[in-house]
Design a protein around this nucleic acid. Structure first.
Length: 574
RNA sequence: GCCCACGUAGCUCAGUUGGAUAGAGCAGCGGACUUCUAAUCCGCAGGUCACAGGUUCGAAUCCUGUCGUGGGUACCA
């Protein structure tokens, strides 16, 4: 069954053709949801645009179109208002039958793309030398949500965790591990990666002998020295273990299958440089191999004057790998907005080299997490905020609220719920902001129970589940044919439930997960209003009870599915 | 200096890709629990959409300029 917008666009096209001739049938009806219930359910704004083409007054055009619109099964009313808006009110039975069409569908009406795209998405990508900190949160969470949405749409998403596992800092880390006898010991567990890094850094700054050994160690490592590589692998394994702990706790769908660090591209860097140089795209300047895309601008430096390769070369090699080996038709990079210039240059270079072809390159920038002082978020003493500490705190705070609100639950259940609610709150707070903007990290607002927060959405879900428990109703037995929309709160819910496919499509196009957050918040809000006004179990009639139960089920499933696309869980009680 | 992003209620943010009287939450004030979870709902109050032009039937949204904030600006990523 076509969705409502498609049906309405069809009717409007026919009406325009009937009024002004078939050459106008394909005019965009500019169909929008009504901003206010008093204007009906939808409005078509095409009359104003046609005024010039037809050389008639917009209102007259709107009237003529309106006259040709059939009133009956689909529309119960059409009115012309303002400068020429055509306000459309839908037949409640149509909404009901649309809902009946999705209640048995586990995708809630969201279509599967019949011609899926091979998408390669780069996100998280932490530097392995240090423990994951607050600066890694956004790429990880936003990238994960985008990957989930694209996958749900049916796209083939290949996740790439482009680890920083090959930088110069590994020289000093390895030397320090050798000095402390770590490689010889039996236990290769590292409790605190940050301490290791700080100790090595201190030595590197203070002791020229150590610094010299560290530099030589990098050369040996990158040159393929077996002893260095063995030790390096041990360190990487340990660091990856730390990273995976965080991913597991965050519920991020990244595993070792998605790991592809900078080291992977090591032997592909020289060919990149040679190929750019021989194509005349890159030229030598001040001893470095550079690509000048704009004469005034700083160049993209492919090879440093000391002969080493920087991240530009790695990014280019990774791009080739993703297109040539992984078959990427759409490459997505979820990387913070300060790297905008780099991505412009890097993309321009790849295009000039002829490596891109028809592949879409998309840089998905995001803003910085700020402290209350409006500066990048730091601990009280100015250190970086560790991600694991943030998660602990979130779970702790959620647990305290649950202890007050749901004291009858067992400690075990409370812990489980606290994890889902606490981590969901952190993720949702991040995702619900327009990703391009900086935002201020605020515990109180994050775990707030009202407003556009994860607990508010989760609570709507909990209230619905509670109805089914109390009523001892199995949702699977419900029939969409029973849905009758009588109360305006029911009608509002129906209209919103039917928007999910559009919202998913819009997130997939814009790569802006906060659109899904806004939608889910409005849905939850509509549900809470419905809940206050429309008794479900104690409905007036059995038919009404069944209808409302079916509506509740759809809301619950939409919330659960929506949160799942954001990588956030739901609970049965809280 | 140059380049980029952002600027919406006291605070934190949305605004369906140009549509009607710009919407939420918090904070403030006032209401609603013997009835499905009050982690909820209802009401009041709060705005020169930074500013000035321009395009358009129509601008918070697009264009130009100004101011403010943040970021980037040759070998770290």
């Amino acid at each position: 069954m076509p969705d409502i917008q498609t049906i309405l666009e069809g009717l409007l096209g026919e009406a325009v053709a009937a009024a002004f001739g078939t050459e106008f049938a394909d005019a965009d009806p500019i169909l929008r949801q009504a901003t206010n219930p008093q204007f009906g359910d939808y409005q078509a704004n095409l009359a104003m645009g046609l005024a010039k083409r037809l050389n008639q007054k917009p209102r007259d055009i709107a009237d003529a179109i309106k006259e040709k619109l059939p009133i009956g099964d689909t529309l119960v009313n059409a009115e012309v208002a303002g400068p020429g808006f055509i306000n459309l009110t839908l037949n409640a039975d149509l909404l009901g039958s649309q809902l009946a069409g999705i209640i048995k569908c586990d995708r809630l009406g969201v279509p599967v793309d019949p011609t899926p795209t091979q998408v390669v998405i780069d996100y998280a990508s932490p530097n392995l030398a240090k423990e994951m900190h607050i600066g890694h949160l956004r790429s990880t969470i936003i990238g994960d949500a985008i990957a989930r949405v694209l996958e749900f749409q049916g796209q083939h998403a290949t996740r790439q965790n482009h680890l920083g596992d090959w930088g110069t800092q590994f020289g000093m880390l390895l030397e320090h591990l050798i000095d402390t006898g770590w490689e010889q010991s039996d236990d290769h567990h590292i409790g605190d990666l940050n301490t290791l890094y700080q100790e090595a850094k201190k030595l590197d700054d203070a002791d020229p002998g150590f610094a010299d050994r560290a530099r030589k160690r990098v050369v040996a490592l990158q040159g393929g020295d077996e002893q260095s590589l063995t030790l390096w692998r041990m360190l990487i394994d340990e660091s990856v273990r730390h990273m995976n702990d965080i991913f597991t706790r965050l519920g991020v769908a990244l595993s070792n299958d998605h790991l592809k660090g900078e080291s992977f591209y090591n032997d592909r860097l020289a060919p990149v440089a040679e190929s750019l140089q021989s194509a005349g795209v890159a030229v030598e300047s001040e001893g470095a191999l550079c690509v000048f895309n704009d004469t005034d601008d700083a160049p993209l430096i492919v090879r440093k004057s000391d002969g080493g390769f920087g991240y530009a070369a790695t990014d280019l090699a990774a791009l080739r790998h993703r297109i040539e080996d992984l078959g990427g038709q759409r490459l997505i990079y979820v990387v913070d907005s300060r790297q905008r210039d780099h991505f412009n240059k890097f993309f321009a270079t790849a295009r000039r080299a002829g490596w891109v072809g028809d592949t879409q390159l998309e840089y998905v920038p995001f803003g910085t997490i700020m402290g209350k002082d409006r500066k990048p978020f730091k601990t009280r003493d100015g250190g970086t905020v560790r991600l694991t500490d943030v998660l602990n705190e979130a779970i702790d705070r959620a647990g305290k609220v649950i202890a007050v609100k749901a004291p009858d639950l067992s400690p075990d259940e409370r812990d489980k719920i606290a994890k889902i609610v606490g981590i969901g709150a952190v993720k949702y707070f991040d995702l619900s902001n327009d990703r391009i903007k900086d935002y201020v990290f605020d515990w109180d607002r994050m775990l707030a129970l009202e407003g556009n927060t994860a607990p508010y959405l989760q609570n709507a879900y909990v209230r619905i589940r509670s109805i089914f428990r109390k009523g001892e109703v199995d949702p699977a037995t419900l029939d969409g044919g029973a849905i009758k929309l009588e109360h305006q709160a029911e009608r509002a819910l129906a209209l919103q439930l039917l928007q999910l496919p559009r919202i998913v499509g819009s997130v997939a196009d814009s790569l802006e997960p906060h659109r899904l957050c806004t939608y889910l918040y409005e849905l939850a809000s509509s549900f809470h209003k419905f809940y206050e006004k429309c008794p479900v179990l104690a409905a007036d009639t059995e038919a009404q009870r069944l209808s409302r139960l079916a509506l509740c089920d759809l809301v619950a499933r939409t919330l659960k599915q929506g949160l799942e696309l954001l990588g956030i869980g739901t609970v049965e009680r809280m």
